[in-house]
């Protein structure tokens, strides 16, 4: 009882004092950061400032995402430099190589005989991948450089029409490209397994510099590199590309930005690498194009570049003509 009385007394005494206390301390006085400081720290840490929104689009809950500024730097500077150096550098190297080494001739000359190197399915698939790759690459590079190179030349209306068409091409050709990569893997993986002889081939740089021809099976170490680069590089480029095609279906803004970075860098490097592949398969080497053109290669070309494959083919052919268990006529 006494305790309650004492409490009442205390309350009465405190009453007027309570009424006079100021409003609760404002936000910034409670040890909270000011907007400017919060933004500064979030930017340093690369963190988003987000809260809650009452509209259905939950992405709108990100108030400030400072990574956008990093992404800008990547797109405008880093990627432009990487792609520019890779593509122009490779072009320069190939031109230099052509000047020094010239077209690599068939040392033994054209034999006049041919043998089948790639089937129709293999060639059709190769060209499906190649054309879609080239168009994907060119329309992609147009997004990186077109604004500076093409836009001033053809003007904004034509450039938008071209870039819009390029965007549709890039979206749709993604599918044949991906299918082709899978078929390629099924068709050629077996012949592209690395082996010991590849080391010797690499040590001699494939005979590109000297004049000897290191031995090789169906594919040499250089071709195997191109193959695995296409399959793995192309696979990652495709996977990141699908993330970009279906924005925000599997990840948030940070993930989209990352997918874009992976896609852009890898695609640019692959494009540059493929320039070398295109060079050696066309102007760079006599007799090479036929393999993917008609599918028939010259016997001498094959012996010089793929000796062990030729041996295997010849053995196989002999066996078809004279099966091992066949007996000579009149032998029995």
């Amino acid at each position: 009882m006494i305790r309650i009385l004492a409490l009442l007394l205390a309350l009465c005494a405190a009453g007027p004092a309570l009424a006079q206390t100021a409003a609760p301390p404002p936000f910034t006085d409670r040890g909270q950061l000011s907007a400017s400081e919060l933004e500064f720290r979030a930017a340093l840490k690369g963190e988003r400032i987000s809260g809650r929104v009452s509209i259905p689009d939950q992405q709108a809950a990100n108030l400030i995402q400072p990574e956008g500024l990093d992404w800008r730097g990547f797109h405008n500077r880093t990627l432009a430099w990487i792609a520019g150096i890779a593509v122009l550098g490779m072009g320069g190297l190939l031109a230099l190589f052509f000047l020094v080494r010239g077209r690599i001739r068939i040392a033994g000359g054209w034999s006049g005989h041919t043998l089948q190197r790639f089937s129709l399915l293999e060639r059709a698939n190769h060209w499906m991948v190649a054309t879609s790759f080239l168009i994907l690459g060119l329309t992609g590079l147009n997004l990186t450089f077109g604004r500076h190179l093409l836009l001033p030349v053809i003007g904004p209306v034509a450039f938008t029409a071209l870039t819009q068409a390029g965007k549709y091409a890039h979206n749709f050709l993604a599918f044949p490209f991906t299918l082709g990569i899978v078929v390629m893997l099924l068709l050629w993986a077996r012949d592209n397994v690395p082996e010991k002889a590849d080391l010797a081939w690499l040590k001699q740089a494939g005979g590109l510099m000297g004049h000897g021809h290191p031995g090789a099976g169906r594919f040499n170490a250089g071709q195997k590199t191109v193959f695995w680069l296409t399959v793995f590089g192309g696979g990652i480029v495709a996977a990141s590309g699908y993330v970009l095609i279906f924005p925000f279906s599997v990840t948030d803004i940070g993930g989209q930005q990352l997918a874009y970075i992976v896609h852009g860098v890898l695609a640019a490097l692959m494009f540059a690498a493929m320039l070398a592949h295109i060079y050696i398969g066309s102007v760079g080497m006599e007799g090479a194009f036929d393999a993917m053109g008609t599918g028939q290669v010259d016997y001498n070309w094959a012996k010089e570049h793929h000796d062990r494959w030729v041996e295997a083919q010849v053995t196989k052919a002999r066996q078809t003509v004279t099966p091992r268990d066949a007996k000579a006529a009149g032998a029995d």
């Binding site: 404002p26 910034t28 000011s34 400017s36 400072p66």
Partner: peptide
């Protein structure tokens, strides 16, 4: 009023510090 948390986004958008 004696308090304020500053101008949201000004630092990021205008590179301008707006003290509270």
């Amino acid at each position: 009023r004696g308090y304020g948390s500053g101008a949201w986004g000004w630092r990021t958008a205008y590179q301008e510090d707006m003290p509270a």
